[in-house]
């Protein structure tokens, strides 16, 4: 009576039917990861697109997973808000690949900002994880499992995310000095602190005076634009094989969620997770 169940309309139902009867499915958004399968027998499926609901006052947005992130950002900017995912590909793609962007070191990485996912399982049924409130978990945390699951556990069709107010000021600074990281440790919680090809980049956000004061603490740093990243930078975990009991659990999860190896066979094979 109070269940999460939402009517997502015909597009989702069509996908459910297709998945129920298909043997081999490759989930693709805009293929921003470049890992889409070339196998001809794979049925390529994409989640629907579009914003389902957006409540700026609740700091929360619910979208179909196929929605492109830049479209979401346009909507959010109008309300002086944002989501913390780099601006390329689809929401579903970012969630499935755990694309944190440069905020990896900060606690507000992607997994903590996904509140709810609706997923089509291998048998075509729909299941939901999480809830549409900030403290979203009741029971086991399937959301954490789904974020970064590379489509191996089902097709994510809907994602509810936490949004955040835009900071008054955002400023990147960089330094190639070997002691740059030590300098950075003097700062109070920079939004991003990252090392790219020997250069330390910091993102300082907040009140204008605070950002200026923080920058004044740094020696040898220069103001700069956001560093550009190759997309590949984000997918380090893809080429890694788990070992021992960890692999047994990963295989166990895959077997439980997709017993007939229907979803993203190529990635599963790469990771030795075919069952």
């Amino acid at each position: 009576m109070f269940k999460n169940a939402v009517n997502f309309g015909g597009a989702v139902e069509d996908l459910q039917k297709k998945i129920a009867i298909s043997n081999s499915i490759n989930i693709v958004g805009t293929n921003s990861t470049g890992v889409a399968s070339n196998e001809s027998e794979d049925e390529k499926l994409k989640a629907p697109a579009g914003i389902i609901s957006y409540e700026p006052d609740e700091l929360m947005i619910s979208v179909f997973a196929g929605t492109e992130i830049h479209e979401v950002n346009i909507e959010l900017q109008a309300a002086q808000q944002r989501i913390v995912i780099p601006d390329w590909g689809t929401i579903g793609g970012a969630v499935a690949t755990r694309r944190n962007g440069l905020r990896e070191t900060h606690h507000q990485t992607l997994p903590n900002n996904v509140l709810r996912c609706t997923v089509i399982a291998a048998d075509g049924s729909l299941y939901q994880a999480g809830g549409q409130v900030v403290k979203n978990v009741s029971g086991f945390d399937l959301v954490k499992l789904l974020v970064g699951s590379w489509g191996l556990l089902g097709l994510i069709v809907e994602v509810t995310m936490r949004t955040e107010p835009l900071p008054q000021v955002s400023q990147w600074v960089k330094s190639a000095h070997p002691q740059a990281r030590e300098q950075a440790s003097k700062l109070y919680r920079p939004a991003v602190e990252t090392l790219i090809e020997g250069v330390t980049y910091l993102l300082l956000e907040g009140h204008q005076n605070d950002v200026e004061q923080q920058i004044s603490l740094l020696k040898g740093f220069a103001l700069c634009e956001m560093p550009s990243l190759s997309h590949q930078y984000q997918y380090q975990n893809l080429n890694f094989l788990s070992q021992g009991p960890v692999r047994s659990i990963e295989r166990g999860i895959r077997k439980q969620f997709d017993p007939t190896n229907k979803f993203n066979k190529k990635i599963a094979a790469q990771r030795n997770l075919l069952t």
Binding site: F140, V147, G148, W150, L152, L238, F240, S242, G244, P245
Partner: peptide
Amino acid sequence: SGETCTFDAETSLFDLRGAFIGS
């Protein structure tokens, strides 16, 4: 099972660390 292992950001594809927390 009685085995020991480590869950972290590097050693698995799925976020087993995240799944374990709150279990």
